[in-house]
């Protein structure tokens, strides 16, 4: 029997143990930062001179929108890695992150709509950013749907990698086209996020919220990847030992 067989299995194991060390730290620090950012933003930051208190939803909306895009960026890169270098963990990453990213996109959409009501008077405006988040959400749904539709794991891994990569290539084009389309349809008078001169007391909590959500999502992703790794490697000896250690 050849040893390379085991070496290749070694990488998920190494990841599992690495994630075991860092998962808790990421989650913990993330939650602390999120709480800090939210409390500061919602209770102590000054109200906006135009929008009043309703602008405070920015502390939820913006981090969610950033995370939704970052997650897709990560998935697309992982798709590339999976197809080119056939790294075992890359499809695990896509599978673990896709629902999280979709949730973030949904939060961004819903909070955007809620924010839109007092600001624009309607729940939905065909604003370029909102529209591209909607498309992003649909792209996420595509990845999740094909993941669920294919039973064969090797095929499913390849398929989600292709779809993620395809989405990543298209995302800038979609964003650009939607922005172009938007300026064609209506002058961009409303911009959700671009406040020319935001005082420090306003953007610092926003930064903290964004950092906190990055860490939080990273922790969640590691956790989900660990579960998936355990499932996929359930026949290897280290997982069996681990299960025995837990006394199951």
């Amino acid at each position: 029997m050849k040893w390379t067989w085991f070496h290749r299995l070694g990488s998920p194991k190494w990841f599992y143990q690495w994630a075991e060390r860092w998962r808790g730290k990421c989650l913990g620090l993330g939650i602390v930062l999120l709480v800090l950012g939210f409390v500061w933003g919602l209770a102590f930051a000054p109200a906006d001179y135009q929008q009043g208190n309703s602008f405070r939803i920015i502390y939820l909306h913006v981090p969610a929108a950033i995370l939704a895009q970052s997650c897709y960026l990560g998935m697309g890169i992982a798709g590339f890695v999976a197809l080119v270098w056939q790294m075992k963990l890359a499809p695990v990453f896509i599978k673990a992150v896709a629902p999280v990213g979709a949730a973030m996109a949904l939060i961004a959409l819903v909070s955007g709509a809620i924010w839109g009501k007092p600001t624009w008077g309607t729940w939905w405006v065909w604003d370029a950013r909102l529209t591209s988040v909607l498309v992003l959400f649909l792209l996420y749904m595509g990845v999740i749907a094909i993941q669920n539709a294919i039973e064969d794991r090797v095929f499913a891994d390849k398929a989600v990698a292709v779809v993620s990569l395809l989405g990543l290539i298209n995302l800038p084009i979609i964003k650009y086209s939607v922005e172009w389309w938007n300026t064609l349809h209506q002058p961009a008078t409303f911009k959700l996020t671009e406040k020319p001169a935001m005082p420090v007391e306003m953007w610092l909590p926003l930064l903290i919220c964004a950092l906190g959500s990055y860490l939080f999502v990273a922790g969640i992703a590691m956790w989900r990847m660990q579960t998936e790794v355990l499932n996929r490697e359930r026949k290897s000896s280290w997982v069996k030992e681990k299960v025995v250690d837990y006394g199951i």
Partner: peptide
């Protein structure tokens, strides 16, 4: 499934 996967990618061309 194919519709769900592909239609969003058609948006830029249509626009």
């Amino acid at each position: 499934l194919m519709l769900l996967l592909i239609l969003p990618l058609y948006i830029p061309v249509i626009i």
